[in-house]
Design a protein around this nucleic acid. Structure first.
Lengths: 241, 241
DNA sequence: CTACAGCTTTTCGTATGCAAAAAGCACTTC
DNA sequence: GAAGTGCTTTTTGCATACGAAAAGCTGTAG
């Protein structure tokens, strides 16, 4: 019994539905390329404005131009690169204006997401949120920026998932990743306040208080937005590593 | 290769007309393919669930498989087709649940869009809105469904543009097109009410009444959503052409 | 010394070719 | 007669090849 934990056992009888998902994937190469390039962009290896030559990327990643092309086009539709008509791909350069617009849209979407979460949250959902909240506060204590960023993303994603609106979740995912790209460099100073607000949000969702959850999330997002603007004025003064 | 007009016209005559700002488009073929396929999907030539074979589409459109591939992938990211790993592209089948989720998201985005519009609208903007409103009501009188749908799209797009948030406009564009795809068959019966609400919206924006504009747009979107649900219950009873 | 013109080089856009995986079908077997 | 198995066909996924357009450079003329 223990010798076949998840193997394919179908002598006769019922085949579990989970088995269909356990089948190995053929590993879509363009997806791997997409992930690789996105990682390179997010961690600034590929600088904004940089010209991305298909052949170079292909050689660097050890694949042909085709998967690279397809990945670049998807990166364009997701707003990570600009694909100029007959000139190639350039890493998107985020402007202050665009960042603010993204933060504004994120605020609206997240607020609605929080309301939905408060409306639909089950006991299990709340338990998950508390767990994520705890993970975030631990990362806060440990002053681990990477874990902090991930915990933040996980919590927001969980809230979106609880709302039971897949379209909304997908959109929030896209917007959040870009926002985080702009915002990561300054995420640290606001961490403490941010996680206090998260706690308040979780509490509101747990109580099923729709209006309060929306309000808390709105304030949370607007605070983030405000912090981003403040950075602009103080970016020349504060310079700690 | 069939006799398909490839759209490349001979450069002749004066250079003053088109040379104003954009010389001429280098004709990105994948974009043309994208538009063509999207049109075929929207007008139901390609039915939901249908398997799209790259080679067939390529021959039908008179191009190779490459641009078709790229167009299909972009269609996937925009939610029009489902691209199964090693199986090909299938026209996306909209479920009731997904349609409702899209309508919900649209409601949120459009409401915010209306608020922004009321905040930023200039005299020229209001003039444009009134012009679009008039075009819509004329189409309403003429009972021209096609013009009506276009007028509706134009008005909403104009409101979004006035808000001066490009990220938001782009998102609304995506969502609206898909919503319209689901909603078009039942757009007619609600037209009159819809345009009355539009008039109210334009008035609120003209006055710069942010809260009222948001409220009107919210009600407008929710009415649409409600109508969509009502259709489900009455789709078997009412059947007038 | 500067500006324009023509050429060269680079890079994208498209087409074609080939291998692998999945689906469909027919055959065999119980 | 039904189910399982192996093969064939179809279709995707990736790689490569070729043509075209744009950018950069060099040389020349003013």
């Amino acid at each position: 019994m223990t010798s076949l934990p998840s193997g394919r056992r179908a002598p006769r009888g019922s085949l579990s539905a989970a088995a269909t998902r356990r089948v190995e994937r053929p590993a879509p190469l363009r997806q791997a390329v997409y992930d690789a390039l996105l990682e390179l962009i997010v961690n600034r290896t590929l600088a904004p404005g940089q010209h991305l030559v298909e052949a170079e990327l292909a050689e660097y990643l050890g694949v042909s131009r085709q998967p690279v092309r397809e990945a670049l086009q998807r990166l364009q539709t997701d707003g990570w690169v600009d694909l100029r008509p007959a000139q190639g791909a350039f890493v998107h350069t985020p402007t202050e204006e665009e960042a603010d617009q993204l933060l504004a849209v994120r605020s609206v979407l997240e607020t609605y997401s929080a309301k939905l979460a408060a409306e639909h949250a089950t006991a299990a959902d709340v338990k998950l949120l508390r767990k994520l909240q705890k993970a975030g506060e631990e990362a806060l204590v440990a002053a681990n920026v990477e874990r902090l960023v991930k915990a933040n993303a996980d919590l927001h994603a969980a809230v979106a998932a609880i709302g039971r609106n897949k379209v909304l979740s997908e959109m929030i995912g896209l917007v959040d990743r870009r926002v985080r790209w702009y915002y990561t460099p300054i995420a640290r100073p606001r961490s403490r306040d941010s996680w206090n607000e998260h706690a308040e949000l979780v509490a509101a969702i747990a109580e099923g208080d729709v209006e309060r959850a929306g309000e808390v999330m709105h304030n949370h997002a607007e605070q983030t937005r405000q912090t981003y603007h403040d950075r602009k004025t103080s970016e020349s003064s504060t310079d700690s590593d």
